[in-house]
Design a binder for these strands. Structure first.
Lengths: 255, 255
DNA sequence: AACGCTAGGTGTACGGGGTACACTTGTCAA
DNA sequence: TTGACAAGTGTACCCCGTACACCTAGCGTT
């Protein structure tokens, strides 16, 4: 009995063990049943012990999401942007499917943690490397947003807001410094965030035209629907086409 | 003082008043601060009083969503499916924007309430009326899902599951009866749900190929991106095109 | 050897949440 | 008058996140 306790002590808790246990527990019982108390019990520890390793439940969830992002394959160093993006999105999807709680967790998260920003940064890079303009990349990221995450909307609203901080209480020179840091660490994100409006030095993503972004993606889909309709598309034929062509690169273009 | 109480009594609570108060409260304080207790207080009533009008908080949220759906404009009786869909989606978006809690509420909801089914039914009808095959409509609905709602994924998993009921405890003849009811009330939904696999009588949407749905939408977007990229698309020009052409029907087709 | 610092774990307690259950009360038909 | 029924009440239970004071083991310094 004392032995058991000591055995536990021998590998003391740490942030990573906590996060991994949280992921495993959520996998098992679902996100709605993941409580600090239950997680603590799972770890053979008193609830408050967790707070020595995560600030609060929010941060726990952020950490879980970060772990999940770690499961997504890095971009393949392919010359073909489309192929690279496709593979990456499908990899992300696989990660989400392994963890049924993930979708909900991501959607509920509003803070842009470094893990999320890193992912976005590298994702953005795939388009830019493919020769896309920053402008087009910007809109494309918005359109794709919901497909990989729930981060469609307020993505670029406040790039400085990686932690909870109201804009008002940050002195201007500090804001400038943060912008420098952002630009250094996330050049792609900053590039596309500042693409559509040229007032570089000022607030970064303030003028992101939500309505336009939405209609951009909507019309892209509607136009695609129309084309398929006119072509007499059917899922059966699409599946046949897919299997007979090389891999799984569907080719809905007529010629 | 007794008068105030009596004034309250004179218009006794009812389901609709509860739901409307809930919507108003959520608009004000956010979904995370909407509690049964607070809502009761707002209505000048003890928390348990609410349970005479809604079964529980889940049902309250379902009701709120139903109210919200009621704010979406009905489909315009237009010959042009694209125009009709576009207007409807934009109307839905406006409704969501009026109620910041809506997105989160919809995403968290998993039950398919009549209100949601009615909306889907009429939405589906727009494509079918436009001459789309049930097959294509099926995929198109999936692809569009995330744009209007969060109901992309498990939409057709269990059409009988409008209320919480495990499939096992429903006798087969009852299932058949439910199917008849579904088909009568939601002909369009049933049509597209049964489109891709022909085993009509059996479980309806069991064989919905999630992976295929996902790739369908993904490739539609990627192909669209590619086309815009090749055309040298820019948001500035797109906005100019939009304003000079009739209304807001973007025309990305080269000719 | 004695000390004191610190990181990690504990125990207690508070306020808030959803809701089961037994109750009162006001209204109206018979 | 009665008595049934719908609406509202009061109390209580269990779960949640987490603030705060405390303990304890291990360690480097003196």
């Amino acid at each position: 009995m004392t032995q058991q306790l000591e055995a536990r002590r021998r590998t003391p808790l740490n942030r990573d063990r906590v996060l991994r246990a949280a992921v495993a527990l959520a996998d098992e019982v679902g996100l709605e049943s993941l409580s600090m108390r239950r997680l603590a019990e799972e770890l053979g520890v008193v609830p408050m012990a967790l707070y020595k390793h995560v600030a609060n439940k929010e941060e726990l969830l952020d950490g879980m999401v970060a772990n999940l992002i770690g499961e997504i394959d890095p971009p393949v160093p392919d010359g073909d942007w489309k192929r690279a993006v496709r593979l990456r999105v499908l990899s992300a999807r696989r990660a989400l499917q392994r963890h049924p709680w993930a979708r909900q967790a991501i959607e509920s998260r509003t803070n842009k943690t470094p893990a999320v920003l890193d992912y976005m940064e590298s994702f953005t890079g795939m388009f830019l490397a493919g020769g896309f303009s920053a402008d087009l990349t910007h809109h494309v990221m918005h359109a794709l947003g919901g497909r990989m995450w729930g981060f469609t909307q307020e993505l670029f609203d406040d790039p400085a807001g990686t932690t909870a901080e109201s804009p008002a209480d940050v002195p201007p020179e500090a804001r400038a410094a943060m912008f420098q840091q952002m630009a250094a660490r996330y050049p792609n994100i900053v590039a596309i965030a500042t693409s559509t409006h040229h007032d570089e030095g000022s607030v970064v993503g303030h003028g992101c035209d939500d309505q336009f972004e939405f209609e951009f993606a909507l019309d892209l889909l509607l136009d695609g629907f129309e084309r398929l309709h006119e072509e007499g598309w059917s899922s059966r034929r699409a599946k046949l086409d897919r299997t007979e062509s090389g891999d799984r690169q569907r080719a809905p273009l007529p010629e």
